[in-house]
Amino acid sequence: MGSFGRKNRVLPGFGPTLGYTVCYLSLIVLIPLSALFFKTVTLTWDQFLVAVTAPRVLASYRVTFGAALLAAGVNGVLGGLVAWVLVRYRFPGRKLVDALVDLPFALPTAVAGITLASIYSPNGWLGRYLEPCGIRVAFTPLGIMVAMIFIGLPFVVRTVQPVLEELDPEIEEAASCLGANRWQTFCRVIFPTLLPAMLTGFALAFARAVGEYGSVIFIAGNMPMVSEITPLLIITKLEQYDYAGATAIATVMLIASFTLLLSINLLQKWSRRSAE
């Protein structure tokens, strides 16, 4: 393996551009992230465990990860359906709907937060019909789940759409020739091809929902032990100047994020391989 200097590079500018890239990356991303690590190791192992397994913290994990899992599940199923409808069928307004699917990506989280909170609050547009039926959405974990569904909506749609578009109709026709009815063709031919993409989208939606703050904070009740999400707990600890506690919990979230990132990369590799 030759050194950087010895390799004969035709195009100019490798040195300066790589140098600038690494410098800027370190200054803005790597060094600040390392501050988290360095602060965490000032705690003893026992202090760290106490900080991240306190009852209130554990409750926040349950709320955050639980709601994110359910929301990503809903998005997985309905997002896949939306992708199917957008790719396979033609109807008036299809292109407009396709563009609108990206709204949760583009809409600032605070706007989504206050809007969802006001719609589902007891006298809101939907809340006023749901409350009498006994379905309390605002200020409960159910509201957190609703906000997370909004946030994760585009992920599954956008990962499944390209796979559906590449799907060869000949395979379905062959299955039909061999005697499969439409449902069988879907279950045994189409769905297995879509599964890696759906799981990737699910994981992306889950990862986004777990870290989400702005969209969730207004509709959640923010009551400790009941409807408090982990990011809020971090901010609360910061406001109480408990930097060590905040850092410990943030480290747990970071580890969860990286694990999810790794899973997503593996899923994407699987998805690419099965598409060939």
Binding site: G211, P231, M253, L254
Partner: peptide
């Protein structure tokens, strides 16, 4: 892949 709150925290 980092939560916005953690981004501010660092």
């Amino acid at each position: 892949s980092v939560s916005p709150v953690v981004s501010g925290l660092v």
